[in-house]
Write a protein that binds this DNA or RNA. Structure first.
Lengths: 336, 336
DNA sequence: TTGTATGCGTTATCAC
DNA sequence: GTGATAACGCATACAA
C-alpha cells in the first residue's frame, strides 16, 4: 500500500491539514514542523495521490490530445510539440487516437466530461459534428481545435490556411510554366480539403485560366490512394504536366507511381507535395512541399487551452497560420 | 457544474447506492427503478467522475507509455499499436516523452506512484538505472520494458534480439561478397547498442574473419550524426565496401552523405539500414533494412502489462523477438 | 501556528 | 430490493 498524508501526519504527530500545508508550501506552518514533515515525506517517498487531489481541487493537470489519425507524420509533429509545451508547465497529455471514427471521438470526449482532464486539443479530423462538440462546449469544457474547420466557428481554433497554401503552390507552378496542374486531394465534403480546392480554383481564376475539372482527383488519404490516383489520371483525356498532392501519404504514393511508371520528376511531371517530413527532403529529387508550421500550431493551441482552463480567455479565438512553400527540385521547370 | 450521482438519486427519489448499482449493472435493483434511473442518466447526460471512481476502486484504466524519444518512427509505431490494443479493452494511454532524460523519467514514474495510472510501459531508452526502477518495482507497480535492457533482468520485458539482427545483416553482406563492413552504431555503454556490436563481432568471428575496429563507428542517434559518420570514416585508413547503420535516423543521414558525395548505392557502397519506415522503401535505391516487429512488441507488452495489473502474471517474463531482415536493392552486389 | 470538520463523487458494506 | 454510511486521499474553511 502506498503511503498517505494520514500516515505522515501520524508519524509526525500533527494533523493532516498541517502536513498538506507543509507539502504544498502554503503559509501558516512552523519551520520546525515543516522540516520534520518534509523529511518524513522524503524518507518514505511520499507521493500525493493525484486522483484524490484532483477530486478535491477539481483539476488534474492533464489534457487530452485527440488525434484524428496517427499515421500522419505532421500530426505526430504537432503532438510532440504540445507535449513539450505541456511539460514545461507541468501538464501531462493523454493521447487519444480516433482513427476518424466519430464514435471513438465521442467516447474520448467523455474524458472531459468525466473530469479526467482539464481540457482537450483536437487535431485534424473531418467535418466537426458541431452537434457533438457544442454539447461539450456549452458545458464550458475547455477545448481548442487544430486544423479542423467546423460549420460554425464556435470554438477556439488554430488553423492552417489551406486555401492560401494551395494558391501559393499553383502560383509557383504557373511561374515555372506549368499549366495543366492535377490536384490530388480529398473529398469535397471535407471542409479542409474543400478549402484546398478553393485555393486551386482561385489561383486559376485570378491568373485568367479556366479550370479543367478532370484535373481534380478526389481520393483517400493513404499511400495507395496516391499511387492509384496517378494511374487513373493517366487514363483520362487530359495529361497533366504537374501534380499537387494535398496530403502527406498520398504524396508519397504519387511519387512512387510516377517513378515506377518510368517517368522523371520534374522532367515529365512537376510535383508539389505536402508535409516537410524526413522523406520529402531525402527523396530523389527533393520535393517541393507545402509545410504546416507544426511547432507554432502546437504552441498556440496549447497556450489557448491553458488560458481557457484558467478562464483567462474571453470569447472564442481563432488564429490562422499560413503554410510555407518550400521550393526544391521537384517543381522546377528544366527548360524555361 | 457537472451532474453527479447524488443529483440523479435526488431526482429519482432513491439512494445514491441504488443509482450506483443501477448504472454499473450490479444485481439487486428493481426493473422499474433501474429503468427510471437509466432514463434520467441519459436525459442529463450523466458521466461518472472518473477521479472519484478511481479513488474509490483504486483503478484508473489508464496506463503510461513512457517513451525515450519521440523522434524515432519505430517508437511511434509501437505507441500506435499499444494505443490500439488498449482501446480494445477500454484503457487510455497517457503519453510521456523523456527525451532520454533520467530526471524526466523519474518524474513520469511518479505517475505510477501517484496512483494516476494502473501501470506503465517503457519504450527504449538507455541503460536502466536499476536503482531507480527497482524502487517502483518493489512497490509492486506494474510495468513492462520494451526494447530496453537492464543490468539485471528484474522486469517483465519484451525485447528485440539486436545481436541476432546485426548478425543476420553481416551474414547477408558476406554472402553478397562484402568484407569490409562499417558499423555505424551508438555508444558501447548503451546496452542495446553493445548488443548490436556483439552481433557484428560474432558474425565476423564465426565466418573466420577478424574485425577491424576502425570499421566500428560510435556516434549519436540523429540524422546529422549519420551524415558526419560517413565523412569521418572516409578519412580513415580503411575504406569500407558496405555500411550497416543501427538506428533509423543515422541511416537516413548516412544515405544522404553517400549520395551527396557522389557515390552510388550499392555500386560503391552497400547499405543495410534500420527501420522499415515509409522512407526506406521509397528512397532510391530501396533500402535493405532490419525491422523491428513493432506490432508484436506492442501487443505483447500490453498483454503482459494487463496481466500484471490483474495480478495474473506470476514472476517476471521475458520475451525476445527477432528483427526481420528485409532485403532490397541497397545491399545487393552488382557483379557477383 | 495548528487542529477539527467537511466536502470532492464514487463504490462497498452493511443493515433493513 | 433498497437505503444509510463509511471509505478512498486530499484540500480547505474555520475554529482554537
Amino acid at each position: 500500500m502506498q503511503i498517505t498524508l494520514k500516515d505522515i501526519a501520524r508519524m509526525a504527530g500533527v494533523a493532516e491539514s498541517t502536513v498538506s500545508r507543509a507539502l504544498n508550501d502554503k503559509p501558516g506552518v512552523g519551520q520546525e514542523t515543516k522540516a520534520k514533515i518534509l523529511k518524513l515525506a522524503q524518507k518514505y517517498n511520499y507521493r500525493p495521490n493525484q486522483l484524490a487531489r484532483g477530486l478535491a481541487v477539481n483539476k488534474t493537470n492533464m489534457i487530452a490530445v485527440i488525434l484524428a489519425e496517427m499515421d500522419s507524420p505532421g500530426n505526430i509533429e504537432i503532438v510532440k510539440n504540445i507535449e513539450k509545451a505541456a511539460e514545461e508547465v507541468d501538464y501531462q497529455i493523454i493521447l487519444c487516437n480516433t482513427n476518424n471514427d466519430l464514435k471513438k471521438e465521442k467516447s474520448y470526449l467523455s474524458l472531459l466530461e468525466a473530469n479526467q482532464v482539464d481540457g482537450a486539443i483536437f487535431i485534424g479530423g473531418k467535418l466537426v459534428s458541431s452537434q457533438l462538440l457544442r454539447l461539450s462546449f456549452e458545458e464550458k469544457n475547455p477545448m481548442v481545435l487544430v486544423n479542423r474547420l467546423a460549420e460554425e466557428n464556435f470554438f477556439t481554433s488554430v488553423l492552417t490556411n489551406y486555401s492560401q497554401g494551395i494558391y501559393k503552390a499553383v502560383e509557383h507552378l504557373f511561374e515555372q510554366g506549368f499549366r495543366k496542374i492535377a490536384l490530388i486531394c480529398g473529398d469535397k465534403d471535407n471542409l479542409t480539403e474543400s478549402e484546398k480546392i478553393n485555393g486551386y480554383y482561385q489561383a486559376y481564376t485570378e491568373a485568367g485560366f479556366s479550370v479543367n475539372e478532370d484535373l481534380i482527383f478526389s481520393t483517400g488519404a493513404d499511400r495507395t490512394s496516391g499511387y492509384n490516383a496517378f494511374l487513373e489520371i493517366m487514363n483520362r483525356d487530359i495529361i497533366p504536366d504537374a501534380f499537387i498532392s494535398t496530403r502527406e501519404l498520398t504524396t508519397i504514393g504519387l511519387v512512387e507511381a510516377i517513378k515506377f511508371g518510368g517517368y522523371f520528376i520534374p522532367d515529365d511531371f512537376a510535383v508539389v507535395g505536402y508535409g516537410d517530413n524526413i522523406l520529402t527532403s531525402v527523396i530523389d529529387p527533393p520535393l517541393t512541399v507545402l509545410n504546416e508550421p507544426a511547432a507554432e500550431l502546437a504552441k498556440l493551441s496549447f497556450d489557448f487551452l491553458l488560458k481557457l482552463i484558467k478562464d483567462k480567455l474571453e470569447g472564442q479565438q481563432i488564429k490562422v497560420l499560413t503554410p510555407e512553400l518550400i521550393v526544391r527540385e521537384s517543381s522546377i521547370a528544366k527548360y524555361n
